[in-house]
Design a protein around this nucleic acid. Structure first.
Lengths: 113, 113
DNA sequence: CACTATACATCGATTGTCAAGGTATGAAGT
DNA sequence: ACTTCATACCTTGACAATCGATGTATAGTG
């Protein structure tokens, strides 16, 4: 199913931070990782990804370093300690958010049936 | 917890449609209903709610009718058949979306631990 | 020689939401 | 009488996340 883009606003940065927490990654790899993990639901646009990475870096949640492999330059990102704390906070926020939506949808469903 | 507003983008219309599907409601009542059902996580701003209602009505997902009770005018909204179909579609979309986010976050968590 | 994949990046437009403001009635407190 | 709060509708300008398009560059494939 094609997901309404508006839904994923605000959760993309969380997913990016989350996959980088697992291991250092570069941009293109992040897109493929999220694409695979979500089973093709999320395929991040470059105009979405790079601003997210730059903002996370500017906020001190990520570090960046360059590597050259087979004539291709890659910018790897590493999560910081501050980033891990923020990730934990945003995960909790996501849980609360998705749980609250389920409550609203669920309460309506009960009354319908 | 205070939820990041960006997260709820795109899900507000779904929640509004969902509670109206249960019973006809007017604006102020919709805000209170979602507020209660979500346990104070979602308190819709009027600048958020009314544009949503007007758009849903324009798209034929809702009908509106006026009532006067105790000198207060209320604009009630009723879901249409088209609206019920669209609600089912958006519910499925929400399930797919939230499930996909969980997969991305969950796969990262496995590798961390 | 064109096309695809990899790999970085920026820019203008779109969209949902917010904060603030506007109009009005009824009830409660001072 | 006056203020404040709750109810009840609405609009407007600004903001922030995302998108689509575009740009640069290298490597491999047809």
């Amino acid at each position: 199913m094609r997901i309404n883009k508006e839904l994923s606003k605000g959760s993309n940065a969380l997913m990016v931070l989350s996959v980088i927490a697992r291991q250092d990654m570069y941009g293109y790899q992040i897109v493929r990782t999220i694409e695979n993990a979500s089973e093709d639901v999320f395929v991040l646009n470059e105009g979405t990804l790079y601003p997210i990475l730059h903002t996370l870096e500017q906020n001190g949640l990520l570090d960046a370093y360059w590597c050259e492999v087979d004539g291709r330059r890659r910018k790897y990102y590493r999560i910081t300690e501050k980033g891990r704390k923020e990730l934990a906070r945003r995960r909790a926020e996501w849980d609360e958010f998705s749980g609250a939506v389920s409550k609203v949808l669920g309460s309506a469903e009960l009354a319908e049936g």
